[in-house]
Each structure stands twice: as C-alpha cells, then as structure tokens.
C-alpha cells in the first residue's frame, strides 16, 4: 500500500474547554482532490490551520509523505512549507505590494529582487488564471473579488507546490465567478499534478472540484467517499447536509460517536 501524500491521525485541538477537533483521521492520496465539507463552525478552518502549522494541535499526527509535521521547525519545516500552496478564503493578498510582487512572493520570500524576471514570471502566472498583463501593476485593492481570487490562485501555484490547500475558495463570489474559480482550480491542480485539499460548504463547488469528499462533524471525519456517491452516501448527516437541512441545528453536535 502506498504512503498517502497527507495523513492525519488522531488530530485534536481545543480552545479552552471547547474541543473543535476530537481525533481527526484522514488520508489524502497523491494526485487526488479531496474536499472536506461540514457546516459552519465545525472546525474545517481549524483543521486546515493545524495542517499548515498556523495552529499547533494538542495531540495527533500530521504526515506529509511520511514526514511528521507536528513539532517540526527550522529548515525542515521550511522545506515542507516549500511544497505547499494555499489559497485563503479572503484571498489574503498583500495590500502594500503590486499584484506581480504578490504572485511571485513565494519565489522571493518578499525581497525586492530580480524585478524584471519576477514581473515576467508573474505575467505568465496571471495568464494561467485568465488575467491580462495590465493587472500585474495594479494594487490588490483595485481588483474585484473574483480577480483577487484569481491572483491568489496564481500566487498559490507560482512556486509549483506538490500540495494545494483551498479555504472556501468560492465564498463571496457570484455563481458564475464561483464556477470559473472552481474550473481554474481543477485545471491548475491537474496541470501541476498536485494533490489538493479544499474545505467548503458550497456543494456546487464540491461537485466541480472533488475526486473524494470527507465530512467533518463533531470534531471527527464521519464519512468519506467518492464525490459520485455524495448524494447516496447513506449517512444521515451527509444526507442532511446535501439536502440543505443542516442549518436547522448544529450538524456537528449530532455527530455519532
């Protein structure tokens, strides 16, 4: 059996007495696109932040190609992060930098070096996500939400990462733009041969982006399976979520033990 690209085991994270992640076990295989679904407040973003090292889990294991990430520091952590690309929910573009510096940030670590080369590279990356060269000189504040998402995607893929993370990539976008962003994500993940882990509660997005789906509820993964069986999962929480009745009561609170 091959080692999964990303393997989570018994991942726990609590804030005070509130346990948000209560032992998450999840595998993401190389080259697949896994989407974690779940109602708002079930800990999807916390899960992502633990994997990215932005939050330290209380216990459990996160392995990237077999290498333990929890507790990693120094050059080995830097090397692991070099393999990762991330698209944030609100794009998180740096306001103080022009678009082209944002896109190439991972290549320069924010230093103002190799300007001409980096700008040419940024323009090429912007073309990959359907943006014109003129966008390169604009500031992020001058862009629409959809354009910011495209720039953020260009930034995420610029350093050719092995694994891409997407945090609610279509939140705040109109359905047409959301569809375009999903298509771009799918295209770019395929083109790079990368592995993708997305979190969202947008079912349309799930169907467009996912190979496999996992549902987070009650701090655990309660169901996972191919996207094709999402509508006939046989799991009550997944069925409630898919039929749009999850918001009536906190889905996470009803997770089976």
């Amino acid at each position: 059996m091959t080692t999964p690209r990303l393997a989570l085991r018994g991942l726990r994270k609590a804030f005070g007495r509130r346990e948000v992640l209560a032992g998450v076990d999840l595998d993401v295989r190389a080259g697949e696109s896994l989407v974690v679904i779940g109602a708002s407040g079930t800990g999807k973003s916390v899960l992502l932040k633990c994997i990215l090292g932005l939050l330290r889990p209380d216990s459990g294991s996160i392995r990237l190609d077999g290498e333990e990430l929890v507790g990693l520091s120094g050059p080995r952590l830097e090397a692991a992060r070099a393999r990762i690309g991330m698209l944030f929910q609100g794009s998180a573009l740096f306001d103080s930098l022009p678009v082209w510096r944002n896109v190439t940030f991972a290549l320069t670590s924010g230093r103002s070096v190799r300007g001409r080369e980096m700008k040419a590279r940024a323009i090429a990356e912007l073309a990959r996500v359907g943006l014109a060269p003129e966008v390169a000189d604009l500031r992020p504040a001058a862009l629409s939400g959809g354009m910011q998402k495209r720039v953020a995607l260009a930034r995420a893929i610029c350093a050719r990462p092995d694994i891409l993370f997407f945090d609610e990539p279509t939140t705040g976008l109109d359905p047409v733009m959301a569809g375009q962003i999903d298509r771009l994500i799918r295209e770019q993940v395929s083109a790079l041969g990368a592995t993708a882990l997305s979190i969202t509660h947008d079912l349309e997005s799930v169907r467009r982006v996912a190979d496999r789906v996992a549902m987070l509820a009650g701090g655990r993964i309660v169901w996972e399976g191919p996207v094709g069986v999402l509508d006939c999962s046989g799991h009550p929480l997944v069925e409630r979520f898919v039929r749009g009745r999850a918001g009536d009561s906190p889905v996470g609170a009803e997770a089976p033990a």
């Binding site: 932040k49 990215l52 090292g53 932005l54 830097e78 992060r81 070099a82 990762i84 991330m86 944030f88 929910q89 609100g90 998180a92 573009l93 740096f94 306001d95 940030f105 991972a106 670590s109 924010g110 930034r155």
Partner: peptide, 13 residues
C-alpha cells in the same frame, strides 16, 4: 484580520 499574516507564514516568510 485579513489573514495576510497567515499568508506570510505559508509563503515561508
């Protein structure tokens, strides 16, 4: 607030 600090960390800065 806008997760730019988190973005810096994920971009190895």
């Amino acid at each position: 607030v806008t997760e730019q600090l988190d973005a810096l960390v994920t971009l190895r800065t």
